[in-house]
Simulated assay, not measured.
Amino acid sequence: MESESTTITTSETFNYPNADVIIRSSAPNKVDFRVHKFILSLSSSFFETMFTLPDASQKAPKTNLPVVDVSEPANTIDLLLRTIYPSIPEPIFDTLNTLRPVLGAALKFKMQAAVVVLRRVLLKPAFLKVNPMKVYALAASYDFEDEAKVASQYTLNLELSTQPLMEDMKTMSAYYYHRLMMMHRRRREAARTLIQTFPPLTPVKSRDGQRPPPPKCTCWDFWNSWKARAEMELIHKPTSNVIFTHDFCYQNSRPDSCSRYNCPNLKILDNLKNSIDAIVFTI
Rank of each mutant, 00 (worst) to 15 (best):
M111P: 02
T245P: 02
N274Y: 08
N131A: 09
E2R: 14
S152F: 00
S43Y: 00
A27S: 14
P213G: 11
L40E: 07
W220C: 09
A139L: 06
A191K: 07
A19Y: 11
T282R: 03
N64V: 07
R120M: 05
I77Q: 00
I22C: 09
V204C: 14
K170M: 04
N262G: 03
E12H: 03
K237L: 05
E231A: 10
M183C: 12
P61K: 07
N18R: 09
T76D: 07
N224K: 09
P66Q: 12
L160T: 08
F222I: 11
N18F: 03
N224T: 10
A140R: 02
W226K: 08
T13L: 15
W223D: 12
E145F: 07
F222L: 14
T6G: 02
F144E: 03
N15S: 11
T218F: 01
E72C: 04
Y175N: 12
Y16T: 04
V70W: 02
C258L: 05
L158A: 05
I22G: 02
V242E: 14
N97Q: 13
A230N: 09
K149C: 05
N224W: 01
P132S: 10
P54T: 13
Y154K: 12
A27H: 09
V102R: 01
K124V: 00
D168G: 04
A140S: 15
M183L: 06
F198Y: 15
P66L: 13
F51E: 06
K134C: 05
R186T: 09
S225A: 08
L40I: 13
